[in-house]
């Protein structure tokens, strides 16, 4: 079973490449059981979006 360290790496890499079948299965299984990694996964979506928002937002500085 994957540990959270590897899961966090796979979640990051999933944004860079298509994961293999086995990687996807192990990831899914881990996420079904681990709140921390689930939260991490959502946070990755958020920080990418926040960064682009920061880039594009109106200028108040």
């Amino acid at each position: 079973m994957l540990a959270c360290r590897e899961v966090s790496k796979l979640l990051s890499e999933a944004r860079e490449r298509r994961l293999g079948l086995w990687e996807r299965i192990s990831l899914k299984l881990h996420l079904a059981m681990c709140d921390g990694c689930n939260n991490f996964s959502k946070q990755l979506d958020f920080i990418g979006a926040a960064l682009r928002r920061y880039r594009d937002r109106d200028h108040d500085d």
């Binding site: 540990a3 360290r5 709140d35 990694c37 939260n39 958020f46």
Partner: peptide, 25 residues
């Protein structure tokens, strides 16, 4: 950030609805 066995040292928290923060200076 991780224990020797690869678990989170501190579990990532639920950020709730983080989009709200985007409106906060």
């Amino acid at each position: 950030m991780f224990e020797a066995g690869g678990q989170w040292h501190r579990l990532p928290a639920n950020w709730g609805n983080p989009e709200k923060s985007l409106e906060d200076k």
